[in-house]
Design a protein around this nucleic acid. Structure first.
Lengths: 209, 209
DNA sequence: ATTTTTATTAACAAGATTGTTAATACCCCA
DNA sequence: TGGGGTATTAACAATCTTGTTAATAAAAAT
């Protein structure tokens, strides 16, 4: 681990992340990654034997972010349910805002070559299982106390994910279609987060008609 | 247009649609398409000069479905706003259910090579513009009569799209992660559609607290 | 029936893309 | 200072992929 190596290896990783996130596995070119990293493409194969290996590395390093926020909030128990829900939505949304291209990247890769990702079966499977258990338990409790109306945990989770994740997925489409850049429309994301919270709160709150 | 030709050309188109939807432009192989269609790959280039041309054809033939339902309902004016909203959600959701892989396909392609799709700038741009105008007008009207609470048309449209489209986008991820097949879980989609309608209704309805 | 157009095939060509290798430079430590 | 490992490079090789072409078959037209 000399000084030389670290720099170049890091440069390759950074360039690879950029390229894979942008173009996907199939669209990415190892030569293009090497060029962007400022190294010969033989160097790329020196540090990472194959394109697959390099991809795997990037994929595994980035997958954790997707459930961030939601998971944290539901492993620590305090506060009323709706407050925690609101916090979960905020944390999750902000995690996505910091990594806006991740959701599409994950979905695209898994959809293109599902057979490749049998690993995530275990990861996601057990993780989501325990998250849903906790959620359902908390829901039932909040429901009994009259804080919220009844709802399935999987249904609620999909509601939350749909609202929070989808805007980031269509971001490129929207920007291509309108020519606008959502990130400079500084109020957009703030507004969107508030809207999502509003929707979920209204979904959960018992209303006297 | 002899008998020969039509069969093979159709076979190529069908195989191409399957391949492009499954693997995306970059992952698709013209040889693989030709093979699936049962023709030599020279034939593919005979009917469709290039891979690009074949892709363009598929893309244009399928893009129309995405806004289906929502557009129809908001170009014909009758019934109260919430009823029309419900109908729009149902029609749109069913259009997606009939073409479940389309949303991810579109998003993936546009995200990978936005420069290629400057065409859609005009199509989507003008289309969405007029749709949003109509929607906003109807919203304002329903709002004045006290049927619903105030909301921006773009906000509401993104709410609807998030809820309706996202489940189809994560379908492959979900199925890879769980090993389940959502289409045989016959109640899932029906349930999801009802949930989306419920959410939007609650979002729009003025509640006496 | 003969000519002309269309469909089809097999073989080939150009270029891109991933990956290897053998030679060379660099660095650290004894 | 010199030896052993690590880093780096340029050149090469194999394969894959798209696209062409020239020859042939089939169909249509006159």
């Amino acid at each position: 681990m000399t000084k030389h190596q670290k720099n170049k290896e890091q440069a390759i990783l950074a360039a690879a992340k950029e390229e894979f996130l942008e173009k996907g596995y199939d669209g990415a070119r190892t030569t293009s990654i090497a060029q962007a990293a400022g190294v010969t493409h033989a160097m790329l194969h020196y540090y990472f034997k194959t394109k697959d290996q390099l991809f795997e590395r990037i994929f595994m390093e980035t997958i954790g972010v997707l459930g961030q926020g939601i998971i944290e909030v539901f492993t620590q128990n305090s506060k009323p349910f709706k407050e925690r829900m609101q916090e979960a939505l905020e944390l999750h949304f902000n995690a996505l805002k910091a990594n806006p291209r991740l959701p599409l990247f994950m979905i695209r890769e898994i959809a293109s070559r599902p057979e490749r990702f049998t690993i995530i079966k275990n990861v996601v499977g057990t993780f989501a299982g325990s998250l849903l258990n906790t959620m359902q338990h908390d829901i039932d409790q909040a429901c009994e106390s009259g804080e919220i109306i009844a709802i399935d945990a999987p249904t609620l989770l999909l509601d939350m994910l749909s609202l929070n994740v989808f805007p980031f997925i269509v971001k490129p489409v929207f920007e291509t279609a309108t020519g606008l850049n959502l990130d400079v429309e500084s109020t957009f994301w703030e507004q969107r987060m508030r809207e999502n919270i509003e929707i979920i709160m209204r979904r959960l709150t018992p209303h006297k008609q």
